[in-house]
């Protein structure tokens, strides 16, 4: 059990002239479930591997609690990690895989057998203990790898896209279980993913990373509703936040000083017959099942509007759009939120 603190941590790989992780300051509280979210190649794995000690920081410091970790090898950091590709030992049975950390570290193993069985039953893999990883499905393999990770009761539990190799139904099932695991174990979880649904549903806080830089660390709802950068608005949400040049909006909308881009989420716009702040023509519609998206052209911009799935709009008709001013977000030239 331990907090994790990063101070100005950077990583530049040899043969590269950009930082994969750049000047990251991050404080992860004890027992927190922190999700590192970002697009592919943004440096999520690198950041996690820096915390694990699998990569050496080019600059900056990593602390567990108050202990500086920079020169401590991953062996001694008291962490566990779960990988996207499961990384089980293919030559060992499920039992041996789960028991490995205890056997390998030569720790006291008097209770090993009951420990392994307890963990196996917790993860519902008791019946698989004698099988080899090659004989298991992806979901089962990832359960085994979770078991191997928790048996040594680490201070910090690291996961790098653990669900990305699984199909959708398994993913949501395991999501719930990992969340439950976090509550039962009471240790710090750091979870990397590129999947915003995963991040939103599991995280206490989300650390959003792009091009190696940490953009915002906040609770999911804060991140969603009050992004401090227009890019975050356009990254989160399906569909993402509309970002419209303020010049396209005319005078009907009052913006804060310094604003060049105005953001609003598609679900916060309604099509109205009465009040209207903006008018545009429908250029296409996208049917999403539970709802429908209208693409509405306003001046030089296209605005997405989320409407009920049973409403009928034909391409080419003009629609009046309404929204509350409180849902508008204002961004300056460099993408930062204008407050």
């Amino acid at each position: 059990m331990s907090s994790v603190t990063l101070k100005k941590v950077s990583k530049r790989f040899t043969n590269s002239d950009v930082d994969a992780v750049s000047q990251v300051d991050l404080e992860i509280e004890n027992k927190e479930f922190l999700v590192i979210l970002g697009p592919s190649g943004s440096g999520k794995s690198s950041l996690l591997r820096l915390i694990a000690g699998l990569e050496e920081a080019s600059n900056g410091e990593v602390y567990f609690g108050n202990d500086l970790m920079n020169d401590i090898s991953p062996r001694e950091r008291d962490i566990s990690m779960v990988f996207q590709n499961f990384a089980l030992f293919p030559n060992m049975t499920v039992y041996e895989n789960i028991a490995f950390p205890i056997r390998a570290s030569g720790k006291d193993s008097t209770n090993l057998d009951s420990e392994v069985k307890k963990i196996a039953s917790m993860l519902q893999i008791e019946s698989l203990l004698d099988r080899k990883p090659g004989e298991l499905s992806g979901g089962e393999q990832q359960r085994v790898s979770l078991g191997r990770a928790i048996i040594k009761k680490p201070k910090v539990f690291l996961m790098d896209e653990p669900l990305s190799n699984l199909d959708a139904s398994l993913r949501s099932e395991l999501r719930t279980e990992i969340k439950k695991l976090h509550e039962e174990l009471g240790i710090t979880f750091i979870y990397v993913t590129h999947d915003q649904t995963e991040a939103m549903s599991m995280a206490d806080r989300i650390a959003l990373i792009k091009d190696g830089k940490l953009l915002q660390v906040d609770k999911p709802d804060v991140l969603y509703n009050n992004p401090n950068h227009s890019w975050i608005g356009s990254f989160l949400g399906m569909p993402a936040m509309n970002l419209v040049n303020s010049s396209d909006l005319g005078d009907s909308i009052s913006t804060k000083k310094g604003t060049t881009v105005v953001g609003i989420r598609p679900e916060n716009i309604t099509v109205s017959s009465g009040n209207s702040k903006l008018t545009g023509s429908v250029i296409s519609t996208e049917y999403l099942g539970d709802s429908q998206i209208l693409n509405v052209k306003i001046a030089n911009s296209v605005v997405k509007v989320k409407v009920p799935n049973d409403s009928k709009f034909s391409v080419g008709t003009d629609v009046n759009l309404d929204f509350s001013d409180g849902d508008l977000r204002f961004f300056s030239d460099d993408g930062k939120t204008v407050r």
Partner: peptide
Amino acid sequence: PKEIFEAAFMSGAS
């Protein structure tokens, strides 16, 4: 796969 070894390293194995 290098993750297999990394998992082993982090397990504390020599």
